[in-house]
C-alpha cells in the first residue's frame, strides 16, 4: 500500500505518495529527519511516484510521476524512480514558484557571503559544489538558486547534490562518509547519484546569504587554475540563459539580475585542482570586501 510522506524543504514543502521501497529508502538516506510520514503537516505540492500498470510492468517496469494530478513526464525505467522524483520536484518548483528569481545554479556561502555557480552539465560544477560543501562552505542550493527579487539575497533551498558519471567515483573516494543515494543508471544525464550535503548545510537551511560573486566554472583535465574576469554584460546574459522563470517574471527578473551583476564580482575559471579553486574563491571574492 502506498503511504503519504512529508518532506520539509525550506522554503517549500512536498507530500509524496509512494509505495516503492526504493524511493522511500533513498529519501530517508538523503533527507534524514526532514523526511517523515505525513500526519497533520500541510504540503505545498502533492507529488506521487508509482509503478506503471499493465503487462509491460512485469517485463520492463516503469515509474510514473505525478504533481497535483498532472503527469508532466513520460514514465522512466523503474530503477530511476528516486532520481525521477528529484527532477519532478525541480520541475514543480520551476513551473510554479515565482516569488524568487530562480537560476539554474549552485550557491555556496562562507558566513553570509554567497557565490553563485551557474554552469551547464559537464562543467564540473557539482564536484566543485560537493567539495566546497565538505570543506568549510555551506551549501544553499545545488541546482536551483532562489534570489529574492530586487535584492542580492539568496534564500537557501537545500537539496542533495546531483553527481554524474565519473564524478560518482571521485565523490565516493573524497567523501567516504557521505550519504549517497543509489545510482540511477543510463538517464539522459548518464549515471546519476545524489549526495546529501553535510549536516551544517541542513542546519542553516533557513538562513539567507548575500551574493558577492558569480563564478562560471569549467573543469579541464590537467589544467592549472586560470581565472578570467567576465565583463558584466556577458555575465548578465549568461545568468539570463540559466534562469528558470526569467520569462515569467520579466521586469522583476531583469532588474534583479542587473542589480546582482552590478554588485558582485564576475569570473570564469578553468580548473583541475579543487584546492586551488577554494583558495582563489576565499582570497579574491570572500575576503575581498
Amino acid at each position: 500500500m502506498s503511504d503519504n510522506y512529508f518532506i520539509d524543504l525550506h522554503p517549500f514543502s512536498f507530500s509524496v505518495n509512494t509505495a516503492l521501497p526504493q524511493v522511500i529508502n533513498n529519501l530517508s538516506t538523503i533527507y534524514g529527519s526532514r523526511f517523515r510520514k505525513q500526519s497533520t503537516e500541510v504540503a505545498d505540492y502533492e507529488l506521487s511516484v508509482q509503478k506503471s500498470s499493465g503487462i509491460r510492468s512485469f517485463i520492463k517496469p516503469q515509474a510514473r510521476f505525478f504533481c497535483d494530478q498532472q503527469e508532466p513526464f513520460k514514465p522512466l525505467n523503474f530503477q530511476k524512480a528516486y532520481a525521477f522524483l528529484e527532477w519532478g520536484m525541480n520541475w514543480t518548483v520551476a513551473g510554479n514558484e515565482v516569488q524568487h528569481v530562480i537560476i539554474h545554479s549552485a550557491v555556496l556561502a562562507k558566513g553570509n557571503k554567497a557565490i553563485l555557480f551557474p554552469a551547464p552539465p559537464g562543467s564540473g560544477k557539482s564536484t566543485l559544489t560537493a567539495y566546497l560543501a565538505h570543506n568549510g562552505w555551506r551549501l544553499l542550493s545545488d541546482e536551483m538558486a532562489l534570489i529574492i527579487p530586487n535584492t542580492k539575497t539568496v534564500e537557501p533551498f537545500v537539496r542533495p547534490i546531483c553527481l554524474k558519471n565519473q564524478s560518482i567515483d571521485i565523490a565516493k573516494k573524497l567523501f567516504p562518509d557521505g550519504k549517497f543515494s543509489d545510482i540511477a543508471k543510463d538517464t539522459h544525464k548518464g549515471d546519476v547519484i545524489h549526495l546529501s550535503p553535510p549536516e551544517s548545510s541542513w542546519e542553516n537551511q533557513t538562513n539567507t546569504a548575500e551574493l558577492v560573486g558569480v563564478v562560471f566554472p569549467n573543469y579541464r583535465a590537467n589544467q592549472d587554475l586560470q581565472v578570467y574576469q567576465l565583463d558584466k554584460t556577458q555575465a548578465f546574459m549568461q545568468l539570463v540563459e540559466n534562469a528558470f522563470n526569467y520569462s515569467v517574471l520579466r521586469e522583476t527578473a531583469f532588474s534583479t539580475l542587473t542589480k546582482v551583476i552590478e554588485n558582485v564580482q564576475t569570473f570564469e575559471i578553468f580548473h583541475h585542482d579543487l584546492d586551488q579553486v577554494a583558495a582563489f574563491l576565499e582570497q579574491e571574492i570572500i575576503d575581498y570586501e
Binding site: 565583463d231 554584460t233 548578465f236 546574459m237 520579466r250 521586469e251 531583469f254 532588474s255 542587473t258
Partner: peptide
C-alpha cells in the same frame, strides 16, 4: 540597463 563597467547595455523588450 547600462553596466557600470562600460562593457555594454542590456534591454528587455517589454
Amino acid at each position: 540597463h547600462s553596466f557600470s563597467d562600460q562593457s555594454g547595455c542590456v534591454f528587455l523588450d517589454i
